[in-house]
Design a binder for these strands. Structure first.
Length: 414
RNA sequence: GUGGGCGUAGCUCAGGCGGUUAGAGCACCAGAUUGUGGAUCUGGGGGUCGGGGGUUCAACUCCCCUCGCCCACCCCA
């Protein structure tokens, strides 16, 4: 299109819609703060290496989905596709491994170079918490519980399902992966083209295939549970036990997987069926190998990310904005008084709107349109009496009030 | 990246098997109402019919390309 338009997959958020986003972020910030997670800010871009190093063998594919470019100094830069790698990098470069556990809340824009669809933009927004330095299953429980409390506070928990699985520790996962690849290789010719490729690249993902024939084959595949060693089984049992004790409902889903090697133990997603095929609203897991993969000291970690757009679509309307008081002068003498009056009202904590032009009727229409709760009308008559006429725009009743008593009187409209 | 659907006013949409001034509702502006909003009535502004090219005497309409949106696939670190 010739006309000016935003870059594909990006979106303007005007105040009305942005309030829905703020509701999600503010709720998440407040709830996570009660569990001891402090908000931090991260750069919106990093050296490409920061993200690429966390992607391992699948990087060929995933790199194509990153927003990457070369800056003027010739450095390869990537707009962050998620927050976890940035937190891990900050932990390493900030020397924070001396001061664990690290408990942080992050929110803001993320970028992926993908074809947009419902709930999936190129610039999207996430909330995110990370708990680093805690190897105990209690950490997984806390992180999931905070997510559940946020969903509850947003009123969407009952429209989501918590799906959970364990990937076990490294030993278990390797054993399972080998068994799975053996099994699937025997059925290679029957797999879909996509899955034949996955078999080499990211075999666990085949468990999640939407292809019907694939699913038939997957039904006969080895089960993850059979390959878990005692350590892994105990860990998972402890996580589930913690959730049980908190009354957090979950569904075991053995097809819920993560492709990369540093993931281990718990993987979970809060999903919904209300958003088409982009069903995950808040998802995460344990990543004990991440920090060392990036070159830092071995540091366990667990966390999640939630999609703000998706959560905002599910959540109800946010609390309405406070309704303004409209200051309505009639004539120039009154206008000279109205300006400082509106200023004083704002200083006193009122939301005050002073129109910019127009006669009384015009200004009253405007006051109605912006949803003003009351109008403070001032003309020559009121000025002469050092007063203003205050009209309740809901009831239509009005009363003349001395300027000295005005703020007090307007208190009823807060 | 692949496949499908859709682009007409700020918004939601109608329309014409190619024909001269392109419509409605809502929204906006003005007036009825020169010190009173919401309701009603009257009038008004606003469109290169997404963009480019082609066919034609004539294209918003047909054809091709392109951009964008939506849906599914892929991907989901």
């Amino acid at each position: 299109m010739a006309a000016l338009q935003p870059v594909r997959g990006t979106h303007d958020l005007f105040p009305e819609e942005y309030r829905r986003h703020r509701q999600v972020v503010e709720t998440a910030r407040a709830v996570s703060a009660r569990a001891g997670y402090g908000e931090m800010a991260l750069p919106i871009f990093e050296f490409t290496d920061v993200f690429q190093r966390t992607l391992g063998e699948t990087s060929d594919v995933v790199t194509k989905e990153m927003y990457t470019f070369e800056d003027r100094g010739g450095d390869r830069i990537t707009l962050r596709p998620e927050a976890t790698a940035g937190v891990a990098r900050a932990l390493i470069s900030g020397g924070l491994s001396q001061d664990l556990p690290l408990k942080v809340f992050v929110s803001g824009p993320m970028f992926r170079y993908e074809r947009p669809q419902k709930g999936r933009l190129r610039q999207f927004h996430q909330i995110d918490i990370e708990l680093m330095g805690v190897a105990e299953p209690l950490g997984d429980v806390e992180v999931i519980a905070v997510g559940a409390q946020i969903l509850e506070a947003l009123g969407v928990l009952d429209r989501t399902t918590l799906e959970i699985n364990t990937l076990g520790d490294g030993e278990s996962r390797t054993a399972f992966r080998d068994a799975l690849v053996d099994y699937l290789s025997a059925h290679r010719s029957a797999l879909s083209e996509d899955s034949r490729e996955r078999l080499d690249r990211n075999p666990l993902r085949i468990l999640d295939s939407k292809n019907e024939e694939d699913r038939r084959i997957v039904e006969g595949a080895p089960a993850f549970g059979d390959y878990l060693n005692a350590t892994s089984r105990d860990f998972f049992a402890a996580v589930l036990g913690g959730l049980d004790s908190l009354g957090i409902a979950y569904t075991l889903n053995q097809r819920l997987v993560r492709g990369l090697d540093y993931y281990c133990h718990t993987a979970f997603e809060f999903t919904t069926t209300d958003l088409g095929s982009q069903g995950a609203v808040l998802a995460g897991g344990r990543y004990d190998g991440l920090v060392s993969t990036m070159g830092g000291p071995a540091t366990p970690g667990v966390g999640w990310a939630g999609g703000i757009e998706r959560l905002a679509m599910l959540a109800g309307d946010p609390d309405p904005a406070p309704r303004p008081i409209a200051v309505v002068p009639i004539g120039e003498a009154a206008a000279a008084v109205a300006l400082p009056l509106a200023h004083r009202l704002r200083a006193a904590g009122f939301v005050a709107e002073l129109g910019y032009r127009g006669n009384l009727q015009r200004r009253m229409k405007r006051a109605n349109k912006i949803g003003a709760r009351a109008a403070v009308i001032m003309g020559d008559d009121e000025l002469a009496a050092d007063s203003a006429t205050v009209r309740d725009l809901d009831s239509g009743e009005q009363e003349q009030v001395a300027l000295g008593a005005l703020q007090d009187y307007l208190g009823r409209f807060r």
